[in-house]
């Protein structure tokens, strides 16, 4: 069973979002890291790059797989998690303690369509 953290919002492509004002912190869910296996590389956008809702902003790679990352919100990247450059396996260790990018949202209302922990739990139960 994958862990689901309360208090976060989730997308159907298994990214999580935590908002603080107009800043959204984005990572991948425990389900996503488990299905990837050992993560060996995280392809992240640069600071000041723009991201768009439901569009690709990067990828996570394991030895035998690659999975694109889709942004749950639109906005401008304000920070990328540099720790993942040296140690991408952090995402396997704790997918919720380790975020991938922080985005200044251009339209915070976009988060309204995301799932809360309960909805995501149900979403996953249909997937598994």
């Amino acid at each position: 069973m994958s862990k689901i953290q309360e208090g976060l919002l989730y997308s159907g492509s298994h990214e999580w979002v935590k908002t603080d004002g107009d800043i959204a912190t984005i990572g991948i869910s425990d389900f996503a890291q488990k299905s990837m296996g050992n993560i060996v590389y995280v392809d992240m956008p640069e600071e000041d790059d723009e991201v768009f809702r439901d569009e690709e902003f990067g990828a996570v790679e394991s030895v035998k797989a690659a999975s694109d990352l889709y942004s749950p919100v639109s906005g401008t990247v304000v920070e990328r998690n540099a720790a993942l450059e040296d140690e991408p396996g952090l995402l396997n260790r704790d997918a919720y303690a380790n975020w991938i990018i922080k985005v200044r949202m251009s339209d915070p209302s976009e988060t309204e369509s995301l799932m809360d922990a309960a909805a995501y739990t149900e979403f996953l139960s249909k997937q598994e």
């Binding site: 590389y41 790679e61 797989a65």
Partner: peptide
Amino acid sequence: TLQAREQHIRREK
């Protein structure tokens, strides 16, 4: 190594 770049994993991407 770095095979996640390649066609047998990424296919059309």
